[in-house]
Amino acid sequence: MKTSRYILYTILKIAAVFFIAFLLFLGGLIVGYGVIGDGSPMAVFDANIWANITRFLK
């Protein structure tokens, strides 16, 4: 019983780390594009913006 509880806690910790990393990534996108880049903070989620970014990187 202790082993299954340990595995569950470990999986929850890993999931929490990934979730926090994802939130920080989204926050970084908003700050980087909206504040530093002088654009609208929510415009970073527009598909046209990402098309321009991928076209720039190619």
Rank of each mutant, 00 (worst) to 15 (best):
M1D: 10
K2C: 05
K2A: 12
K2S: 09
K2M: 10
T3N: 10
T3C: 08
T3W: 08
T3M: 13
R5Y: 07
Y6Q: 08
Y6I: 15
I7N: 01
I7L: 11
I7R: 09
I7D: 05
L8F: 11
L8Q: 11
L8E: 11
Y9E: 08
Y9F: 13
Y9D: 07
T10M: 12
T10D: 04
T10E: 02
I11W: 01
I11F: 10
L12N: 06
L12E: 10
L12I: 10
K13G: 10
K13L: 07
K13C: 06
K13W: 01
K13D: 01
I14D: 01
I14V: 13
I14Y: 02
A15R: 03
A15Q: 04
A15E: 01
A16N: 04
A16T: 07
A16M: 04
A16V: 03
A16L: 12
V17I: 14
V17A: 14
V17T: 11
F19Y: 02
F19E: 01
F19R: 05
F19A: 13
A21N: 00
A21R: 01
F22V: 08
L23G: 00
L23V: 13
L24H: 00
F25Y: 15
F25T: 12
L26D: 00
L26C: 12
G27R: 07
G28V: 03
L29E: 08
I30A: 11
I30D: 02
I30Y: 10
V31C: 04
V31E: 04
G32Q: 06
G32D: 04
G32T: 09
Y33G: 00
G34Y: 05
G34C: 06
G34K: 07
G34T: 05
G34F: 06
I36T: 06
G37C: 07
G37F: 09
G37H: 11
D38F: 12
D38T: 05
D38H: 13
D38A: 10
G39R: 14
S40F: 03
S40K: 11
P41D: 04
P41C: 05
A43F: 07
A43T: 10
A43D: 15
A43S: 15
V44K: 06
V44S: 08
V44I: 15
F45P: 08
D46Q: 14
D46S: 15
A47F: 14
A47G: 01
A47I: 14
A47T: 15
A47K: 13
A47C: 03
N48A: 13
N48K: 14
I49C: 04
W50R: 05
W50N: 12
A51R: 14
A51C: 01
N52K: 14
T54H: 02
R55Q: 15
R55M: 12
F56V: 04
F56K: 14
F56M: 08
F56Q: 13
K58D: 09
K58Q: 08
K58A: 10
K58N: 06
